[in-house]
Design a binder for these strands. Sequence first.
RNA 1: GCGGGAAUGCCGGAGUGGUCAAACGGGCUGGGUUUAGGACCCAGUAGCUUAGUGCUUACCUAGGUUCGAGUCCUAGUUCCCGCACCA
Length: 820
Amino acid sequence: MTYNHKAIEKKWQAAWDAKKTFKVTESSKKKKYILEMFPYPSGSGLHMGHALNYTIGDIFARFQRMLGFNILYPIGYDALGLPAENAAIKAKSHPKKFTDDAIKNFITQQKALGLSYDWSRVLRTCDVEYYKWNQYFFLKLFEKDLVYRKNAPVNWCSECNTVLANEQVHSGMCWRHASTPVVIKQLEQWFIKTTAYADELLDTIPKLDWPDRIKSMQENWIGKSFGTEINFLINDKSWKIFTTRPDTLFGVTFMVISAQHSQLMDLVTAEQKPTVEKFLHKIHSTSDADLDVLEKDGVFTGSYAIHPITEEKIPIWAGNFVIAEYGSGMVMAVPAHDQRDFEFAKKYEISIKVVIQPGAKEVDPEDMDSAFVNDGVLVNSGKFDGLKKDVAIEEITTFLDKQKMGKKAVQYKLRDWLVSRQRYWGTPIPIVYCDDCGVLPVLEKDLPIVLPEKVKFGEGNPLASNEEFVNTSCPKCKGKARRETDTMDTFFDSSWYFLRYTDNLNKKLPFDKKKGNYWMPVDVYIGGAEHACMHLMYARFFTKALRDLGFVKCDEPFTKLFNQGMLHGEDGHVMAKSRGNVINPLDITKQVGADALRLFLVSVAAPDKDFAWSSSGLESIAKIIKRIPLLFENLKLGNSNKKVESKINKAIKEISEDITSFDYNLAVIKLRKLIEDFSQVDEMAKADAESFLKIFHPFCPHLTEELWGKIGNKPFISLADWPKCNEKKIDKKFEQEEELISKTQRDIVHVKGLLKLEKPKVYIYCIPPEVKIFEEQQEFLTSVTGSKFVKVFASNAKDIVDPEKKAKKAKPGRPSIYLE
RNA sequence: GCGGGAAUGCCGGAGUGGUCAAACGGGCUGGGUUUAGGACCCAGUAGCUUAGUGCUUACCUAGGUUCGAGUCCUAGUUCCCGCACCA
C-alpha cells in the first residue's frame, strides 16, 4: 500500500463531518471540557502557532474522549475588533465581509488539521445572536452597580483612535502598537468594577493549576499592599495619605501630589500658578518620549499640609513620579528612608530628617548618598523613639487610629476595567442619554441594539455620525434621546464565550444554567501566555460576577491552564513575515500530511517549551509515519508472542502517562520505538494491533482511522476505547534479554569491523543461565551479524572452544566473545 | 528595583534522590549501498584503555544535607520572561 496522505486525510475529514462524530450533549458520563483560546480571525489566516495550539488541544481531547469522558471540545471566533475594521477601511471593504471571509478561511485550515471539534457549537462574536448577550450582561452588571460612568484620566492610543484599559497598556505603549505611546486624556468613560473582586481574584490564585509565571503575573497585577492611611490637613480639608511606612512619619519633610491629579490646581496658590503650569506643560510634552529614563521632576505648589502629630507645616510639591490613580494620588515624602524621595529632596534641596538609625551612632543626613530603607531603631520620633521598625509600624498606626488621625488600610494596583471604545466594529453599549431623564440603561426587552451595517468610515466613530442609530427614544419618558455610540472592548466578548459554547443556540438565554453547570469549569485551557493580565483576568472576574448573579456555580473558569511554547522559524527567530521565515500549516499538510505535521509539532520539545521549526525534523517524522502502513501490510493477525504483548502493554502505560502530563514529546519517542520494534514482527493478535493504532490515534488520527478499517473494524477509532494496560504482561525479563542480545550484537559487529573480517566464526561465552537466551536468538544474531557461524558456550562448558581464553571474562548481562 | 523561570555533549532536548547521566532527534565523521547526487543501512562523536569488555572525568560556580544529588538546601554568576517610580 502506498501511503497517500492526501486521499486518506480528505476521506476521514469528510467522514467525521458527515457523521458529526464529535458532536456532544450532556449525559450521565463524566465530562471534560477542553478548550483552546479562540482565535482572532485575521486576514492572513492560520499560522503555525495556531496549528501547534490546536494540535496540543486535539491530542488531549482525543485521548480523553477515548478514555470515556464526555468531551466538550468547541471552537469559535473572536470576530469583533479593531484590526478587521482597519483592514476593511484600507481595502475599502466592510468589516463584516472581511471577517466572514477570514473565518471561512480559518475553518478550512482547521479542518485540514483533523481537529475533533464539535462543529455544531461554533460561535462568532460578531453575530448579533452572540453580542446581544454582551449587552444583556452589561445591563446585569449595571443593575449590580458593577458598571459605572466616570470622568477620569484615561489611556488613549492615537493609532487605534480609542481609549484603552490599563491591562492593554504595555510599558507605556499600546498593546497593539508597540511603538505608539499611550497618552493620558481626561474623558467620560464606562468602567467595570473589577476592583470589587480584587480580593477574591487574588486569594483564589494559589488554588489554580496554572503555570507559576502566569499566577505571579496576576498577583503582581492585582498588587495588594497593606499599610496605613494617615490624615493630613490641607487647607482645612483632610487628605488620606496611604503609606506602608508609618514608622517614618516623623521624617516627613514634604508631600508630593501627582502632576495628573484632578485636584492639583486647587492646591496651587496664585503666586505659584505660572510655575506649576509651566511644569505641567513640560511633562506633557516629554511624556511621549523617553518614558523609562524619566528623571524625577517637580515644583512647589505653594500649599502646606499639617503634620498630624507634630503639627508642623509641610510643603506640598507636584511631581511627575506619583501616580494619580493609586492611593490618594499624593504621598508623604520621607527622603531619609525612601530612595525616590531622597533623590527628589537632593535635587530641590529639601531637608532630610533621619528617623530610623541602623546602629547606636547618629547618622548625619549630609553623609548619606542614598536612602536608608532597612531595619533599625526609631529616633527623632517623640515618644516612639527606641522602637524597632516593625513594632513602630504597629504602634504608630494604633496611636493614629485612637486619635482618629489614621487607620490600617489596603491598596491595590488593579484598577477598574475601562470598557468603552470609540470604534465601530464592536458591541454597542446599551445605554441611552435623555436630556430630561439622564443616563439610562436600555430595557432588556429592547435588546439587541443591532450594530448598523451601513455606516461611513473615515471620520471618527462611524456610529456617532449615523443619525438612524443615534436617535432613539427615552426608555423612561419616551421623549427624544440619543444612543451611546461607544462600543465595548472586545475583551468583554471573550470574557464569557466559554459559557456560550455550553448552549450556543439558546435564543432565550445566554446559556441554560443546567448546561452551563454541567460543563463548567473548563478543565484544560490551552493558549499563549500573552493574555496573563488581560483576557485571563477579565474572564476570571466575569465568572465570579456571573456566579454572584446566579448564572453559574463555579468560582473559576479555567481549572488548568496550559501555555504552549513559542514557535520559532528555522533561523531561530520568531516566525514573522518580515523575516521571511514563516511556514504555512496548509502547505505542510499538503506536502507531508496533517498527521505528519501534528506529530512533528509535538515531537521536538515539550509543548510548553519554545522550539524552532526544522524541515529535516519534519522529514524524519514523515518517514516514520510512512512505515506504519507498510508494517500493517505485512502483518498477519493471529497471535502475539510474549514479547509483543510486553511491548504493547508497556507502551500503553507509558504513553497514557505522557499524554496525561502533556509530555507529548516523550510519548512520540515511545511511539517511534514501538514502530521499530514492530517492524520485526510479522504476526500479532488483532487486539494488540488495535491497541497500537489506538495509542497512535491522538497524534495521527487520519492514518489510524484508515488502518482501523483495514484490519476489519467499523468506523470510528476516534470513538473507540483507549486500551487498558495489562501490567502482568509487561515482562522486564524480555527487556533485559533484548538488551543482552543487542549489546552482544553491537560487540560482534564492532569487532568484526575492527578486524575487517568478512564472514567470521563467532563464539559467544556467557554465564550458564544465559545460554538459553542466546540459543533462542541464534537465528537473529546470525542474520544481523552477517555471520553464519555462531556458537554459544556456557563459560564453564566442557566442550568449549576458546583459543584466546575469553570465556572467563563473561559476566552476567555481558558475555565475552571471540571472532576468527 | 520587584516578581517568575532557566543553566546538561557540536546543537535541540530527556533525565527531578539510587539498578546505566546524555533517551530521542538533528549535525558532523567513517563505512556499506549507489553511475553520481539524494534516499537508505551500520558504526563513531569527553579522555585513557581493551579485538568488544574496562577505567577516569563530566550535568554554570562554591559550599551544604544524605549511605547516595544533575535532581534537595544556601550563596553567587549568567541568561530569558513579566511588571516597572504602586508610596
